[in-house]
Amino acid sequence: MAEPSFWRNFDFTSEKIPSQVTNAAPLVKVTNNTINIMGSNTFYREAQPPEGVASSGEVVVLLHGAAFQSKTWLDLNTINLLAAMGHHIIAVDLPGFGKTQSAQIDEPADYLHTFMTSLRITQVILVSPSMSGRFSIPFIMKYPEDLGGYVPVAPVSTSLIVPDASKLSGLGLVVDMNWVLS
């Protein structure tokens, strides 16, 4: 754990979560915030590394699927564990989910971009399960320079990425395109 970016090459299935992470997780303070993005009063949760844990410098943005919300990441202890690893964590309720009001979002890429710009975060690691692909896929196509990494978890809208897969792979954002093409 001495190297802040250890997780980039770490096989999480091969080992248990280090005890220093599980011990620090309960010390993480999660705040609830709201910000108006494109007419949507957007709710999000935010956590920083707790005292005594060195910052990795990484910002992880957690999106969610249709049956979930930012609270799911809290309930699963994901927010606390990632912050205890040294990451700045933001879990957002997308429009119409959780505590974020419904709003007509014509440009999901611009919605995410405006959200991140408003919070003054760039080079984020974007975690996108299921339905959130409606937001993440257009975002990575339109704003690849704003990404530090992309973690797709069966996202929808993958057909949008197929024509430009090689361009994204060349940027180092997507290494294995098999999940898109299958």
Results as ranks from 00 to 15, higher is better:
Ser70Tyr: 03
His64Arg: 11
Phe68Asp: 15
Gly65Tyr: 04
Glu46Tyr: 04
Val53Asn: 06
Pro50Lys: 11
Ala54Val: 03
Trp73His: 15
Lys71His: 05
Ala47Arg: 01
Ala47Met: 12
His64Tyr: 03
Val61Trp: 10
Leu63Met: 08
Val61Pro: 00
Ala67Tyr: 01
His64Thr: 09
Ala54Lys: 08
Ser56Asp: 03
Phe68Val: 04
Ser55Thr: 07
Thr72Ala: 12
Ala67Cys: 02
Gly57Ser: 13
Glu58Gly: 01
Ala67Leu: 08
Ser56Val: 04
Gly52Gln: 10
Leu74Cys: 08
Trp73Val: 09
Glu46Gly: 05
Ala67Phe: 09
Glu58Cys: 02
Ala47Gln: 09
Gly65Ile: 07
Pro49Leu: 05
Gly57Asn: 13
Glu58Asn: 13
Ala67Asp: 07
Ala66Gly: 09
Glu58Thr: 15
Val53Trp: 01
Ala67Arg: 02
Leu74Phe: 08
Ala66Leu: 14
Leu62Met: 12
Arg45Pro: 00
Arg45Lys: 11
Ala67Trp: 01
Pro50Thr: 13
Ala66Arg: 10
Thr72His: 10
Ala47Val: 03
Ala67Lys: 03
Val59Tyr: 01
Lys71Tyr: 06
Ala54Ser: 11
His64Ala: 11
Ser56Thr: 14
Ser55Ala: 14
Pro50Trp: 02
Leu62Pro: 03
Val60Phe: 02
Gln48Ile: 00
Gly65Gln: 03
His64Ile: 14
Pro49Val: 09
Arg45Thr: 05
Glu51His: 05
Pro50Gln: 12
Gly65Ser: 14
Ala54Tyr: 02
Lys71Ser: 14
Leu63Asp: 06
Leu74Val: 07
Pro49Gly: 02
Gly65Asp: 15
Gly65His: 02
Gln69Arg: 11
Ala66Ser: 15
Ala67Ile: 03
Glu51Phe: 00
Gly57His: 06
Ala66Cys: 04
Leu63Lys: 04
Thr72Cys: 06
Arg45Ala: 07
Glu51Asp: 13
Val59Glu: 13
Ala47Cys: 06
Ala66Met: 11
Val61Leu: 15
Glu46His: 08
Glu51Pro: 00
Leu62Asp: 07
Ser55Gly: 13
Glu46Ala: 13
Leu63Gln: 03
Val61Tyr: 01
Thr72Ser: 14
Pro49Cys: 08
Ser70Ile: 02
Ala66Pro: 00
Glu51Met: 05
Glu51Cys: 01
Gln48Tyr: 02
His64Asp: 08
Glu58Ser: 13
Pro49Gln: 10
Ser70Arg: 03
Leu62Asn: 12
Val60His: 04
Glu51Gln: 11
Ala67Met: 09
Ala47Ile: 01
Pro50Phe: 02
Val59Leu: 10
Trp73Ile: 10
Val59Gln: 08
Glu51Trp: 00
Ser55Gln: 12
Val53Phe: 01
Thr72Ile: 04
Ala47Trp: 01
Gln69Asn: 14
Gln69Ala: 12
Pro50Tyr: 06
Leu63Ile: 09
Glu58Asp: 13
Trp73Leu: 10
Gln48Ser: 11
Ala66Trp: 00
Ser70Cys: 06
Gly65Arg: 04
Val53Ile: 15
His64Gly: 13
Gly65Val: 05
Pro50His: 03
Val53Glu: 10
Glu58Phe: 11
Arg45Phe: 00
Ser70Pro: 07
Val61Cys: 05
Phe68Ile: 00
Gly52Arg: 08
Leu63Gly: 05
Glu46Val: 02
Arg45Val: 06
Ser55Met: 07
Leu74Arg: 06
Leu62Tyr: 01
